[in-house]
Design a protein around this nucleic acid. Structure first.
Lengths: 156, 156
DNA sequence: ATTGAAATATGTTCGTA
DNA sequence: TACGAACATATTTCAAT
């Protein structure tokens, strides 16, 4: 279990730093420094503080999957047999690269996934061949994202 | 509408570059260059090609919302009245910072959202005060993520 | 597509306030 | 916390292959 500092205090300068880097992880520190009016060394030190607190958990290049032909996003609710260990099912889901998110959830479904496929045929294969074949999966319910309108992180 | 090049060809070197930067957006180009055994200038040029193709759509610092006390993630299915313009509902959802994702979907729900709140009370406020008050929203169905087990991008 | 070299810009550390 | 100076690295461009 990761230790996390819940007592972190972030001020307006921290927010400006974070907003710049959440927008573009490669924004130069010195550019941010010029923007907020303090030295690069100070920004550097604040970033170290923010990393140490665990608030910054990393950085990523964001890929546009459509360019690779991945145009079908779907959500899948999974019903698991009572006796089955959920972690074992998750372990199997991790092996399916099309599964981008996976949650234990309240409600009817035991597990809820977001998956990304090239097309409906690909989606069908992932459902029938990869997911339905996992031991303990009794039934699934699928709905397709026709268009994603919002995609963002928490507001800082 | 964004123009996207679907004929992009990416080879093993491109994949190594992308994997490194998807893992850590601030990986130095020269470090990648040393890793794959070509010059920094060549990596630089390939990155420009990948950006131009639209495959790379940006970069982000990733924030761990738990550090800020955001511990309750939930999914919300929204039923909209027939007569209501969906884009108008989405426009209102965009104003709610807790809404991280929003999709038009097939199935029973018109709109499907992922939201992130501090706790159940906060979630209840977002549901009752912010979402239910949107014109055209007739009913919602909510389920909570007890634990997210998978979070990743498409495999390159 | 790739290279090396040159010019520019940035990252990082450290002593000091 | 913040600063500036000094040093180490990285980015970017370019002519040549």
């Amino acid at each position: 279990m990761k230790i996390v500092n819940h007592n972190i205090q972030i001020d307006g300068i921290d927010k400006k730093i974070l907003r710049a880097l959440m927008e573009d992880a490669r924004t130069p520190i010195l550019e941010i420094a010029r923007g907020v009016g303090i030295s690069g060394a100070a920004i550097h030190q604040r970033l170290r503080k923010l990393e140490k607190s665990g608030l910054i958990s990393g950085s990523k290049f964001v890929i546009n999957p459509k360019v690779l032909g991945y145009t079908t996003m779907a959500f899948i609710g999974i019903f698991l047999d009572k006796a089955i260990s959920n972690p074992e099912a998750v372990k199997q889901l991790k092996k399916i690269p099309e599964v981008l998110e996976c949650h234990y959830t309240t409600g009817n479904w035991s597990i809820f996934c977001k998956i990304l496929c090239k097309d409906n045929e690909h989606l069908m294969h992932v459902l029938n061949r990869d997911i339905q074949s996992i031991t303990g999966v009794s039934r699934t319910e699928t709905f397709i994202s026709l268009d994603q309108q919002i995609e963002r992180q928490i507001k800082i």
